[in-house]
Each structure stands twice: as C-alpha cells, then as structure tokens.
Amino acid sequence: MHLQEGEGFTPLHTALLMTPFAFGAAVTSPLAGRLVGRIGRRVTLVALSVMMTGTALAAWLVTSPPDALWWTLAPAMFLAGIGGGGVISPNFTLSLDNVPPEMGGAAGGALQTGQRIGSALGAALLMTVYQAVNAVTSAPVAARSALLAALVVLSVAFAAAVRSWRAGD
C-alpha cells in the first residue's frame, strides 16, 4: 500500500521490490527443512531472529527517498525472506512430528487452516495500523508503524518458539 499509494510505484515496480523476500525464502526453506531434523526448534529461533532483523531494517529504511528504496529496502526484504523461509518448513515439520500417520491428513489440514487464519488476521492488523496512522500523518510513517506492528507480532511468535523449545517440544 505504501509503495503504490504513498510513493506512486506501479504494481510491477512494487512487486519487483518485494521479490527479494521471495528469493530469500526460496533459498532457506529447503535448507531449514533439512536442518530441523538435526537441531530442532533452534532453526525456528534463528530464522525468527533473522526475520525480525530484516523487518526492523525495513521499518527503519522504508522512509528512504523513493529513488533509493530499491537499494535500501530490497536487501532488508531479502534478509526478512531468509528468516521467513527458515520458519515455515521447520514449523510444519515440528508441528506434525508427533502426529500418528493415520491422522496426518487431518492434522495437515488443521495446520494449513490455522496458518491461513493467522495470515489473514496478520494482514488485517497491519493494514488497520497502516490506515489508522496514515489518516493522521504521512504514508512513510504509516508504513513504518505497520512494520513495527509486524515486529511486535514476530516477537510474540519468537517468545512462543522459545517457550516451546524450553519445554522440549
């Protein structure tokens, strides 16, 4: 929203600027999926830390001049993507690890449903923050506020992952 409405980027330019996130996730997802069997929940903890770092950098850099965003925001998105890719595969593996094979389909469906609901709620939260802040200030400040809200959500996920790791799950 910020890039298109606030900075006037075309949908194509916006998509290209967000593509480094997808590349980062594509690089780490298979690697993290293989590592989780050896080092467990620590993969998720490291990946969430990396994703949080990328998101914090994006929040700091999103107010850069529009012509500099490709060189500032794209690397932060790549870093966040590296973390994001390292969360999804291990999280699925760890969540389904103790499910009996005959319940695998139902458990996988429930996990996918939970993920979709969480994604929808997260997107709604971030857009609500963006729109509320944008109504009283500038689009770059609104974008930063939305990214900081995402950082709060990631912090909650990190705390839950630490708790799960300490409990031996």
Rank of each mutant, 00 (worst) to 15 (best):
H2Q: 12
H2F: 15
Q4K: 00
G6V: 10
F9R: 01
H13W: 15
F21S: 08
F21V: 05
F21A: 12
G24K: 05
S29R: 03
L31W: 02
R41N: 13
R42N: 09
R42Y: 14
T44M: 09
L45P: 00
L48N: 04
S49C: 08
S49V: 04
V50W: 15
A56G: 05
L57V: 11
T63D: 14
S64N: 05
W71M: 12
W71G: 15
W71L: 13
A76V: 06
M77A: 14
F78A: 06
L79Y: 07
G83M: 10
G85K: 01
F92Q: 14
F92D: 14
N98F: 15
V99M: 06
P100K: 13
G105N: 11
A106E: 10
A107V: 01
Q112R: 02
Q112L: 12
R116G: 09
R116H: 12
G118T: 04
S119V: 08
L125M: 13
L125W: 14
T128K: 01
V133Y: 11
S138Q: 05
A139V: 08
A142F: 05
A150R: 02
A150M: 08
L151P: 00
L151Y: 12
L154V: 03
L154E: 11
A160V: 05
A161Q: 07
R163W: 15
